[in-house]
């Protein structure tokens, strides 16, 4: 499933054009991204939380050459699915 398929779902359910649906999805994603950019958590009830976590500097290795390289401290986005989401994908 890709963005266009989600736009299609929105088009079918909400009755706005596919083009407009695609634009709004883009706006939703950009809004989420700008919140994460600030380091803030995005909590979507029934879905999960997008959390920005800080990683310390550490030493890594190039798995191909075995050469040691420094990995700079960085921030990463992790997703913690909600209980509802976890249950949802396990019902058969």
């Amino acid at each position: 499933m890709r963005k266009a398929d989600i736009a299609n779902e929105v088009y079918e359910r909400v009755g706005i054009s596919k083009k407009e649906a695609a634009e709004i999805i883009e706006t939703v994603l950009n809004t989420i991204k700008s919140v994460l950019q600030k380091g803030e958590t995005v909590k979507i009830a029934g879905f999960g939380n997008f959390v920005v976590r800080s990683k310390r500097a550490r030493k890594g290795r190039n798995p191909k050459t075995g050469q040691e390289i420094g990995i700079t401290p960085r921030r990463v986005v992790t997703f913690r699915p909600s209980q509802v989401f976890k249950k949802f994908v396990n019902q058969s």
């Binding site: 779902e9 929105v10 359910r13 909400v14 709004i24 939703v28 879905f47």
Partner: peptide, 17 residues
Amino acid sequence: TEMIVNTIFNSIRQSLA
């Protein structure tokens, strides 16, 4: 707008399920 936002997350959930 609320329906659109809900549809986005619901369709992701449904697709994974």
